[in-house]
């Protein structure tokens, strides 16, 4: 039964473990059991994980990495269709493509200059943390949070919390743009702005927020 959701295949890139649907901690437990059963087969090997569209944080990936290393198996890649999962894997220095790519892992790690594109709605409880710029095509709902080293652009409604310019070099030079700027809580570098208690806007226009004269101001974006 558990093997329905965990598939192990040998490929030209070594062993590939595909993890299907189900709660992540439970899958990790099942994988643990599976590796235990066939310890001698796996010992000393290196594996790649294929996780589909699942969203994983660095902590989730570390958890599975620990289970694998307990069985003396090395995790070298996490392949996923979800950008966040790929970013988390890249932050841990793992490969995100099973096919070998010409660039070295050092170069593929995100830096303050990189930008991540998120093409979906960020929902309550979801957190995107990225050392570079964050671009969202979709809404950022109340209760969602973006923490970016650089700038944040939201092509949609920004109603969650944003911290831009977490990277010290950029800091208060960062900007936050949104088609509908009504964040619950906006930080740029060390500056903080809370949304006004009542929304008295008569018309919603795209705005850009930045630090001016030691406080955060938002100005309509006009062409």
């Amino acid at each position: 039964m558990p093997n329905d959701r965990i598939k192990i295949k040998g490929t030209s890139n070594g062993l590939v473990i595909t993890l299907g649907a189900g709660a992540w901690p439970r899958l990790v437990e099942e994988l643990d059991a599976l590796l235990g059963e066939r310890a001698s087969f796996f010992k000393g090997g290196r594996v790649a994980l294929r996780v589909g569209a699942r969203l994983l944080s660095t902590a989730d990936i570390e958890a599975v990495g620990q289970v694998l290393s307990k069985h003396h198996v090395t995790l070298w890649a996490v392949e996923s269709e979800a950008e966040e999962t790929r970013t988390a894997a890249a932050e841990l220095g793992l490969e995100v493509e099973l096919e070998p790519r010409p660039i070295s892992p050092e170069q593929s790690r995100p830096t303050a200059g990189d930008t991540i594109l998120i093409r979906r709605t960020l929902r309550s409880g979801q957190v995107v943390e990225f050392p570079g710029n964050v671009v969202v095509i979709g809404d950022v709902n109340p209760g969602a949070e973006i923490r970016a080293g650089g700038n944040v652009v939201v092509w949609g409604r920004l109603r969650g919390a944003v911290h831009a310019g977490m990277n010290e070099e950029l800091g208060e030079m960062a900007v936050v743009c949104a088609l509908d700027m009504s964040p619950s809580h906006l930080r740029i570098g060390d500056y903080l702005a809370l949304s006004p208690a009542d929304d008295s806007r008569t018309q919603i226009v795209p705005e850009m927020a930045f630090v001016h004269d030691r406080q955060i101001v938002a100005e309509p974006w006009s062409v």
Partner: peptide, 17 residues
């Protein structure tokens, strides 16, 4: 609606759309 939004996010994180 807030709670529904959170739930949808959790369901999406399980790879169910």
């Amino acid at each position: 609606v807030r709670d529904a939004d959170r739930i949808i996010g959790l369901i999406e994180a399980e790879g169910k759309y």
